[in-house]
Every structure is written in C-alpha cells, then in structure tokens.
Nucleic acid binder design. Structure first.
Lengths: 143, 143
DNA sequence: ATGCACATGAGAATGATTTGCAAGAAGAAA
DNA sequence: TTTCTTCTTGCAAATCATTCTCATGTGCAT
C-alpha cells in the first residue's frame, strides 16, 4: 500500500506542529490515508474501530477538528448531510455532488479560481477560503 | 413602500400553486419582502411576531420550507451559523461572507456560471443548482 | 523512569430544525 | 354565509449532528 507514505507525511506534519500522536489518532489517520471516498464522522468511527476498538465518536470529532486546524484534513459541509472529510494531500479542488446518488466528484478550475479572486478584489475583499459545490445529475438520465 | 409589490407577487405565486395564505404566512411574507438583509429563522420569528404575535418558531420553519419548495425563498447554509433566508425576486447571485463581521455581500458573474456549466458537462453532469460562497476579509485590514 | 499537560471515553448537554397531536382556520362548494 | 374537508398551527417532545464535562488515562520531553 502506497498510502503508508501519505500516512507518514501526515503524522510527521502533525508532530512538527506539536500534536501528540495517540493510539486513536493513529487509527484515524490510517483510515483517512486509505480512504478513497469522503467519509463522515460516523463512517470514520466504524472504520477506525476496526483498527482500534477503543476509539469513540467524541474522539473522532475532536481529532477531526485538530486535523483540520493543522491543515491535514478538510471538512466538507454539503447540504442536508453530516459533514464529510477528506485529506488535504491532493491539491485544492471543488466538488460536484450527484444529487441522485450522493456521490462526490472532485474537479479543479484555475479559471474559476482566478475569477473568484478578481471579483472579490473588485469588491474590496481578499478571499480567505471558498466553497464551490455543484449539485448535479448525470446527463441523459431522465430520472 | 415598494415592497408591497414584491409581497403581492409572492402571495400570488403561492396562491397560483395552491398554497394557503394564512395569517402567519402573511406576516412572514411581509417580513421577507421588506428584509434588506439575510435573516435566520430566529430573526424572522422576532420580526414576524411584531406583526402577528401568534407566529411560532415551528411555523416559521414550516413556512420557510414551503416557500422554498415553491421557489419564493432561498435557504443559505453558510458555515457554522443557522441557515439564513432571502427572497428569490432578485436574479441569481452568489455570496461573499465577511469572515470578520458576518456580513453578506451579493455578487454575480456570468463567466463563472458559464464555466461551471462547462466543467459539469465535461464530466457528464448537468447542474441542478450550485453554491459558491467566498469567505473573505476586507482588503487592507490586518485585523 | 517520571511528571505534567494534554487526550480519551462515556454520557450528558447543546442548538438548530423537525415532528406528533389536538385544536384551529383556509377556501371550494352548496 | 354555512358547511366540510383538508391543510395549518402552537406546543412540547423528539431528532440529529456535534460539542462539552469530568474523571481517568497516556504521550513524550526531561
């Protein structure tokens, strides 16, 4: 598994910033490094429990907050569903949410990024972060 | 007040669609038609209560849902705060949220709209709706 | 190995939003 | 208008995701 590198990178980055690496944090980091989807807190609890049964939901949430504060994961607040999480190893991207299946597809557009910055600047603002979510359905599907 | 026209338009649109216009819905519609900001459910309760003290928070929420389903209002889910609402009389626009004050500024960019549609199409999707929120701070303000 | 600051588990608390239910009104029809 | 059916409302209790409290456990610098 090549996710090991990813795991190591995250752990190192955290240690660098003085974050303690506990048993449960290891489990959570491991799960995150292997995730190919965008799990929510509950799903992370299930997966992390398989590695370390002692992990509690409280810790999942607390750890997620710590990881987010340290730039290791990103919290995705889509409409009407519990927050999903993804690691920040991949470069910045936005999301398309399939309104029929709930699937999340990632995409990136420098043009849009640039336009956003321009618009904000025109209005006298500097973007701290943004969220661009496209709720869509597959083409050629009546239902 | 020119908001009366706006109020009438909303009520007519709702009647058209078979939505009953109750006393409390009148109060809520009236408040919405006059709002120049983006009030949340609680704020709407306060304002609507001034017109009709019998309005309850449950009704605010239920009505808001009905209005949204009928295309009269839009629900804005910004991060970490209760949902805000705005009427849909103005043309589509996105939002800049001042991270320091919580202020909401509206803007519109056809270029971005077009790019979004193109990107979605390339990936085989058709946009149902989208959300573009720019969390930003005023330029030239260290804090 | 030690100690202290920080992390954890369990469950209670929170806050926004929704819901069940009995009572009250829209509004189409008579 | 009066009636009747159906939709609404207020109230309080219920949900749901997320956070917090607190007593106990544990990284990790020394």
């Amino acid at each position: 598994m090549a996710d090991v590198e990813h795991y190591k990178a995250m752990e190192a980055a955290l240690r660098e910033r003085g974050v303690r690496i506990t048993r449960q944090r290891q489990a959570i980091l491991s799960v995150l490094s292997e995730a190919r989807d965008h799990p929510d807190a509950n799903e992370l609890l299930i997966r992390a429990s398989a590695i370390d049964p002692s992990v509690s939901l409280s810790t999942i949430y607390r750890t997620l907050t710590v990881l987010e504060e340290n730039g290791v994961v990103q919290r995705l607040n889509f409409e009407g569903v519990p927050a999903k999480f993804e690691t920040t190893d991949a470069p910045h991207h936005d999301h398309i949410i399939d309104v029929e299946t709930g699937d999340v597809i990632e995409f990136r557009s420098d043009k849009i990024e640039k336009l956003q910055a321009e618009i904000a600047a025109e209005l006298g603002y500097e973007i701290v972060h943004h969220r661009l979510d496209l709720y869509a359905k597959r083409l050629g599907k009546t239902k």
